[in-house]
Design a protein around this nucleic acid. Structure first.
Length: 478
RNA sequence: GGCCUCAUGGUCAAGCGGUUAAGACGUCGCCCUCUCACGGCGAAAACAGGGGUUCGAGUCCCCUUGGGGCUACCA
């Protein structure tokens, strides 16, 4: 049978990384097994619906490289893929389940339910309406009494199933409540919709968070009542913000979009979250999507929660950046360079390569290059370098030599600048490092700079370089 | 509270009865070097605790402790 997995988020906000990882594993498992990956929107809770959230789901999955074979915006043979558009379907199956004895109408009022609260504030429905006669039910229905449909869970017995990552899970039916399947508004709850849709959409492998581990037996009861085959279950451990808090949208952190905005590459984010809860056999870390598909396997999925470590994400993002060609890097860095103080003043194609090994996330770029436009009076102590044996006295005589050297060349490319400066050092009895080091300070006025004097001179150009050297000479002679 | 579940360095993790208990991030040191990075080399750092089972336990079982989840007309 063809493998079919589904990612079924509810559109209640932004795409958070936990959901992103669930989607990724669904995608990887489907692709690995030559199956289909389906997107279904679970919007049965009209109260929590957030405008625009559905579009964010679409775009995030696409940006993350997880193309779905079926979904609201791409179609498919099992639609509609939005639950609010499937209301009649749920109604039909709810009635069928009632006939089969797996569910029943409940007319209890909120007030009555209140009286059922135990000392911990938990209500446990007492199956009160299960005892209603057929006539009573029909009468209430005719009278338009508001109702819900509840699942009829046996009082005794044990629900057992095999989870692909957690193993055998058993829950005593007495622990389970007769949940509401269809709400007063006629829409189903997750408890019902997921079962109906997963079956109708031919989902073979249900991949979702571990929060469903203990309620799965309830769903199995329905599969059984309908006479449907139960899917394979693959529950995933949570991703944590720290040791005690789950990474969730409630804290407003961990939105995929936010990370992209901060200058993380979608591929790096996806690659990183893949590693939170899964480890390939060969222990690879940096992987392309195709490599992940190839290596993905369920026995590498872990059971314990993983803490999200943005330091490691940064590192991985940096690895992606460093692996880019200069052209690729220039393209992603361009907007950030242009947003810095430097703007478009210089040839940004010369600046970009300096940044590639020096930033881990793109948003660090402005701070790294703003110094180019911050040339002003600086401390002459910067010329002191113990190992190179340079100081401001040496600078006083060397900076003019540098000035003359650069003044004499017309092609301001890397090689020309480097060779002429080296020659200058040699001819005057200095080590090239001494001249280069002094030049770097004289051109930047900074203790640290990304790149050396040659790169700086090249970026600044002849005119600006000479202007700065003149400034430094004046400063040294003050 | 009840039920489900998890537990290897600071973090992600390999391990699936016999290992000097991998690797990665981070940290620290050294090398390279015109500064900062990159790169290279190296170091410190872990089986939550207690009982069993076994010739032998990080690996299997039980308890304790700690974490997470469920216990909604949310998913």
């Amino acid at each position: 049978m063809k493998v079919r997995t589904r990612f079924a988020p509810s559109p209640t906000g932004f795409m958070h990384l936990g959901g992103m990882r669930t989607a990724l594993y669904c995608y990887l498992y489907a692709r690995k097994n030559g199956g289909d990956f389906i997107l279904r929107i679970e919007d049965t809770d009209q109260e929590r619906f957030v405008e625009g959230a559905t579009e964010v789901i679409y775009s995030s999955l696409k940006e993350g490289g997880m193309t779905y074979d079926e979904g609201p915006d791409v179609g498919g043979n099992y639609g509609p893929y939005i639950q609010s558009q499937r209301k009649e379907i749920y109604q039909k199956y709810a009635k069928e389940l009632i006939e089969k004895g797996g569910a029943y109408y409940c007319f209890c009022t909120k007030e009555r339910l209140e009286t059922l609260k135990d000392d911990l504030g938990n209500t446990r429905y007492d199956k009160h309406c299960l005892n209603l006669s057929k006539e009573e039910i029909e009468q209430k229905l005719r009278d338009g009494v508001p109702y819900v449909i509840r699942q009829n869970i046996p009082k005794v017995g044990v629900g057992t199933y095999e989870d692909a990552v957690y193993g055998t899970i058993s829950v005593d039916f007495s622990e389970l409540e007769d949940n509401i399947l269809i709400k007063t508004d006629g829409l189903p709850t997750y408890n019902f919709a997921n079962v109906i849709d997963d079956h109708l959409m031919g989902i073979t492998h249900v991949i979702r968070g571990s929060e469903y581990l203990s309620s799965t037996p309830k769903y199995n009861l329905m599969y059984d009542a309908f006479g449907w085959e139960r899917p394979c279950y693959i529950h995933l451990p949570p991703i944590m913000k720290d040791a005690t808090r789950k990474l969730s949208k409630r804290y407003g952190d961990a939105n995929f979009d936010d990370f992209v905005k901060k200058g993380y590459l979608p591929q790096a984010i996806v690659n990183y979250i893949a590693l939170l809860g899964w480890c390939p056999k060969d222990n690879s870390e940096k992987m392309t999507m195709d490599e992940m598909i190839e290596k993905f396997s369920l026995d590498g999925v872990s059971k314990s929660p993983a803490i999200f470590d943005d330091v490691k994400l940064r590192w991985l993002n940096g690895e992606y950046l460093k692996a880019m060609t200069d052209e690729e890097f220039y393209n992603v860095a361009k907007p950030y360079i242009e947003a810095s103080k430097v703007g478009t003043k210089y040839d940004n194609r010369l600046i970009a390569p300096l940044l590639k090994t020096r930033v881990e996330i793109l948003s660090e770029i402005p701070d790294k290059i703003n110094f180019l436009e911050e040339f002003e009076e600086y401390s002459l102590d910067l010329y002191y370098h113990k190992k190179m044996k340079t100081d401001k006295e040496m600078a006083k005589v060397v900076v003019p030599l540098i000035y003359k050297t650069l003044e004499s060349i017309d092609t301001f490319d890397h090689d020309t600048i480097y060779t002429s400066l080296s020659n200058c050092a040699q001819e005057n009895g200095y080590k090239s490092g001494q001249v280069l080091g002094i030049a770097r300070v004289a051109l930047s006025g900074k203790e640290v700079t990304p790149g050396g004097s040659v790169e700086l001179a090249q970026i600044l150009g002849k005119q600006e370089s000479l202007r700065r050297l003149q400034f430094s000479m004046d400063l040294l002679n003050k």
